[in-house]
Write a protein that binds this DNA or RNA. Sequence first.
DNA 1: TAAGTTTCTGAAACCGGTTTCCTGACCGGT
DNA 2: ACCGGTCAGGAAACCGGTTTCAGAAACTTA
Lengths: 346, 346
Amino acid sequence: MSNSRVNVRWVAEQAGVSPATVSRVSRGSAQVSPELRERVLRVIEEHGYRPNHFGRALAERRHGALGLVFPGLSGPYFSELIQGFESEALATGDQVLLLSSHYSADTDDKVLDLAARVDGMAIHAGTVSDAVVEQVSQQIRVVVMADKAGPAHASVSTDNSTVGTLTRHLLVDHGYRRLAFVGTPEGSPDVTARWEAFLAAHREAGAVPPAGPTLVALAQADGAIAAQKLFDESDARPDAVVCANDETALGLILGALGRGLRVPGDVAVTGFDDMPMAALVRPGLTTVRQPVRELATTTAQLLHAPLTQQDGDTVLDTDVVLRGSCGCQDSSGGPTTHRSSAGGDS
Amino acid sequence: MSNSRVNVRWVAEQAGVSPATVSRVSRGSAQVSPELRERVLRVIEEHGYRPNHFGRALAERRHGALGLVFPGLSGPYFSELIQGFESEALATGDQVLLLSSHYSADTDDKVLDLAARVDGMAIHAGTVSDAVVEQVSQQIRVVVMADKAGPAHASVSTDNSTVGTLTRHLLVDHGYRRLAFVGTPEGSPDVTARWEAFLAAHREAGAVPPAGPTLVALAQADGAIAAQKLFDESDARPDAVVCANDETALGLILGALGRGLRVPGDVAVTGFDDMPMAALVRPGLTTVRQPVRELATTTAQLLHAPLTQQDGDTVLDTDVVLRGSCGCQDSSGGPTTHRSSAGGDS
DNA sequence: TAAGTTTCTGAAACCGGTTTCCTGACCGGT
DNA sequence: ACCGGTCAGGAAACCGGTTTCAGAAACTTA
């Protein structure tokens, strides 16, 4: 801490002016005569003075920081989410404070701590109890991601109903009869909505859905576990598998190939996310593209906006991306996309 | 902001005591008579008073936060890094401020901003200029990750020389003659050290190394690109490929399989990291296990430790993990590991 | 030249806690 | 009854900025 003694008053003294003038110069808030400004700037430059963040924050009554609460980092979804959020926040001059819940019990308390040091907080679904979200919403601006809005906070999510379109494609266009769904609805509004869209599409098509989803988590390794459940331990192998995200889909494909099954010949597979790898594997992964980065940046923008706005739910459009893994012709030219019909703000 | 008016003085007034007493109760720093403590606690409880972070930080002259600077989030390496760091920091009561450089030019300035709001900063290799690292080191405690220490800051890294052991295994034990190396040394001390270990092993074994590395980045998609370069555009296909990390190795394997090549029959592949997926693919990926989480937690611990310690370089041990992709028998029972000989602190 | 504006600057109050310093009460001991 | 010692708790200073307020100086305008 070489320069722990350089504060406004000290700089003011060196430059022969008042602390007020130093403040005015350092933040450029008001007119200062060229001569004094010059004197002050020289001292600032010379001693590398940077206004103490706390003094400033205390006086301004704002933190200049946003909080981001998410369950844990696994895979490209959360990576993209964090990057997008961080990038947008920095663009508007805000710092980002991170809180990973790790699904642990004392997260609620940590969130309340965090609420005391940020101007706004983005909370991903499945991390903290509704009661705490509510409580925090009353202190600072809160936006929840991938969930519904509440009385005092807005939300941003993506349109999961497109899984219905995808399921209909498998049932109707390709004529698959025994579909499986890989993912755990409980604790994730996203997976819940996808599972429900999967069921709804079966109803509409007059097809019989599986008794329940194949319950695994969302990492690539979980796809390998699902492969074991579906291909080794099950008596009737499905002819198409709808996965809750791309990672499990890739894990599942690797598991299928490892067992000598052809994809999509013996089993068709679809994902959700359209992560970069989805276009690179062979066959290409049929999936739903969701704008994760936009999800994050929109969230950050809402947090930065004035508190007066009451935004409700923002739902971002998603697209079906048809590649080879569902049985379609895998054209290396741009894949066919079906735009979902989700509206903007509700 | 329902409770923006609840501060020490207000609570003090409500409880009929002085602000000093409220402070003493809220932080439990000194003896307060049971009766007053009770009165104060009731008011605190009732109105959900939480001491303003800035007031406290300003008075205590510490931020209660650590900064983490890294290039970008791609893949499990950085995910694990952030999680480990965040987890350790929270355990000691520190918050985490995130700064992702995105390889952009104005990172240096952002880092200096960040330095003004944290007690210590972890900087990953390849994010900011040495000069800035040096400058920040003079203000706060700095630990660099995956690089060497400097005059004023410590470092934590992992032992990359194990790539030499792995390369020797390919050359000597398996007898491969044409090896390739996938990764870009420039800008990454880790990849540089791995490439050098790769070259050194060739020299020791009297083998001829490739003219240069196959230059791609570290994401899974880059492995697919490397596959194109090595299998489609090259005249002499290598019989073994050493990848700078597991992600590119997996991308490369997918690329090889997609071209009808057998792994390891036609081409052997190795990685670095031992990410979870490495054990799940078939054949299992031969790789080097590095303790990423320990790298992160050690870094956080060093930052939390008193400033007086001069730690220099900490190098964490890494292990060769032999699975099927190099041509070894892929025993599903625990893989053989060769422990590296790296010391602890230097 | 007098009156009215505008522009610049410093003194002082304030943001919300923490901590030092000091007073007054209470204790046991002689 | 008097004295030294301990302890609880309040007044005030301080952490490092920002901002309001008011006064002084410079410049217009009549």
